[in-house]
């Protein structure tokens, strides 16, 4: 399985990371190196083995589905790069 520059560009877009066109061949090469390393996993017989979902055999804790926190908009917004009138501001979205 080899990754070409087109696939590299698609993955970069899915990850929402801008990669300039002239950097795509090097990126594709790096992906191929790492995926080549990962390919070893194909040697393992995993027939009948369930994918691990939790490393410790314990049921996750549940809590009541109630509001336990909130009413602190200033704290929530305090680190925002652009916050106005109690909202996070982003560039105009036109669909």
């Amino acid at each position: 399985m080899s990754i070409d520059t087109k696939t590299a560009a698609k993955v970069a877009h899915l990850a929402r990371i801008r990669v300039e066109d002239d950097k795509l061949p090097a990126l594709a090469q790096e992906f191929n190196n790492i995926l080549g390393f990962i390919e070893q996993l194909n040697e393992v017989d995993v027939e009948g083995v369930e994918p691990m979902t939790s490393v410790t055999p314990m049921r996750l804790k549940r809590r009541e589905d109630v509001v336990t926190d909130g009413n602190m908009p200033e704290k929530v917004m305090s680190n925002a790069p652009d916050a106005r009138e109690g909202f996070f501001a982003v560039p105009k979205v036109v669909e």
Partner: peptide, 25 residues
């Protein structure tokens, strides 16, 4: 980006689920 790739449609089973099976072993 590697993580995005191994989780993307068509590769999830081949990479991510296989790795989780190996992890169980």
């Amino acid at each position: 980006m590697i993580g995005t790739y191994v989780l993307s449609a068509g590769f999830y089973d081949a990479y991510y689920n296989r790795a989780r099976r190996v992890r169980a072993l």
